[in-house]
Design a binder for these strands. Structure first.
Lengths: 224, 224
DNA sequence: TATTATATGATAGTAATACTATTATATGCA
DNA sequence: TGCATATAATAGTATTACTATCATATAATA
C-alpha cells in the first residue's frame, strides 16, 4: 500500500541539528547523500569532508547543519522512527484487534518503510538502521544526549508498542523489556542473516521474522 | 563460587592479533590498561597513543601487538566469550537437567564473570561488553573478518546454548535466532537500565533479567 | 530602491588520529 | 661470544575533526 505523503513531517527535536536540514536544498542534500554515503562506506569511514565533496559543497557548510557526524546519524535514526510511528498510526487506525495491531507493527519494523519519501531513500535508510543505528546510543555521551531528549522518537515507539501488548495482557509486568528486546532482535537478526548466518535461522518463508517474534511475544505474555 | 584458574587459557584465533599479547609483560599490559581505558573514555575516544602513554611505552610498540584498536576490541570480546564458555562447562558439567543448565547459562551471561583473572579486570570487561561489543561486528569489514574466523568464540557460545535448548525441545526450529536474541537482549537491557530506563523495566529483584529471559525462552519453545 | 539579514562559498589553519619506517639499545638463549 | 628478538626513541605522513574569517549571492524588509 502506497501512501500520499504530503502530510508527513518528522517531529525531530531541535537539539539534534544546528540548522533544520529540511528547510533548504543544501540541507536535504546533506540528508540524502549522507544517508547514501554512510551506507556505502560505513559510519566509521564516513566524514563530512567526503560528504561535502560528493555534494559539491564545503565541509564548513555541512557543519552549519550538524555539529558532527554522530548527530547526523541520530537525525537519520530519528527520521526513521518518525516514519515507523506514522505508519503504525496509519495502519492501526480503526483497528480494534490488538493482536492484528501487533502483527502490523512487527511487519513495519521488519522491512524498509514503503513510501515515496522525497528526502531519503527508505531502502538505504533501513540498511543504515540495521548496520549503524546502535551506534547512535552506544556512546559515552548517551546520558547527556538523553537528557535533552535526543532519543525521544525511539522511546515513543517502544511506548506505543507496549500499549498494544498491554491491551492483550494488561497484567504483564515486563512490556518495555520485551518490546525493546524484540525491536533490537528483529534488526539484529537481519544483520546476522546477511553476515553471521550461524547466529540465526534463515528461512525461505517471506515473513518468518515477524512471525517468529509475534509467536515469541504472545507466548511470553500468556498467563500460565 | 571462586575457581582456581591456572587451567584457563583463552582459545583465540591468531588472526586477531599480530603478536600474542599473553606471551609478554607488555602484551598483558596492553590488554589490562586497554580494557580499563576503553571503559573510561569510550571506544571512539580511545587511541593507541593514549594507551601507550598510560602504559609508558610507545605507539609503535602497541601496533606490534594489534593492527588497530578494532582488533583489540575483538580480542577483548573473544576473551570474554572464552571465559563464558569455560564457566558454562564448569557449572554444567555433570548436570543432567537441561533447564537447570539453561538457568546457569543465563546467570553467567547476565553479570560479570566471577573469577580472579590475572590479566583482565572482569567487572570492567563486562562493562565493555555491554557498551562496546556490538561495535566488534557492526563494521563494513564484518564478512572479511568472519571469513578468517574472528567471530568464532561468539558463534560457539550460541551453538552451545542452542544445544541445551534443543535438549528441552528437539523440535524447535528457530533456536539460533532465539539464542542470539536473548544474549543480545540481556546485554542491551543492562545498558538500557543504566542509560535509557524507559526502554526496560528495572526491578528490585536481584535476578530479574535471567528470570525474565528464562521464562521467555521456555514459553517460546513450548509446543502448543 | 537601499538596507539588511541570511545562506553559502572559498580559503586557511590547527590539534589530534591512525598509522609506517628507521635506528638504537637491551635482554635471553645457543 | 654471537645472534635473535623485543622494545624504545624518534620522525614523518595523510587524514580527520573541527574552527575561523571573509567574500558573495539571494531574499526579506523598510
Amino acid at each position: 500500500m502506497h501512501l500520499t505523503l504530503s502530510s508527513f513531517t518528522p517531529n525531530i527535536v531541535h537539539d539534534i541539528y544546528v540548522k533544520n536540514p529540511l528547510q533548504s536544498t543544501l540541507g536535504t542534500e546533506i540528508l540524502r547523500v549522507g544517508n547514501e554515503l554512510i551506507a556505502e562506506i560505513g559510519f566509521e569511514a564516513f566524514t563530512f569532508k567526503k560528504l561535502a565533496t560528493q555534494i559539491g559543497t564545503t565541509e564548513a557548510s555541512v557543519y552549519r547543519y550538524f555539529e558532527n557526524k554522530h548527530k547526523l546519524l541520530l537525525y537519520l535514526t530519528s527520521y526513521y522512527w518518525c516514519w515507523v510511528e506514522y505508519h503504525i498510526l496509519m495502519r492501526n487506525n480503526n483497528l480494534l484487534d490488538a493482536c492484528r495491531q501487533l502483527k502490523n507493527v512487527l511487519e513495519i519494523i521488519g522491512r524498509p518503510i514503503k513510501a515515496d519519501d522525497k528526502n531519503l531513500n527508505q531502502e538505504i535508510l533501513f540498511y543504515n538502521i540495521i548496520n549503524e543505528s546502535s551506534k547512535s546510543y552506544l556512546v559515552k555521551s548517551v546520558d547527556e544526549l538523553n537528557k535533552v531528549g535526543l532519543y525521544f522518537n525511539y522511546k515513543k515507539i517502544v511506548a506505543i508498542i507496549s500499549d498494544i501488548i498491554l491491551k492483550i495482557n494488561p497484567d504483564f509486568k515486563y512490556v518495555h523489556m520485551l518490546v525493546s528486546t524484540v525491536i533490537e532482535g528483529i534488526h539484529h537478526q537481519i544483520f546476522f542473516a546477511n553476515h553471521l548466518p550461524s547466529l540465526t535461522d534463515t528461512d525461505t518463508e517471506e515473513n518468518y521474522l515477524p512471525d517468529f517474534y509475534y509467536h515469541l511475544i504472545l507466548s511470553t505474555i500468556k498467563n500460565d
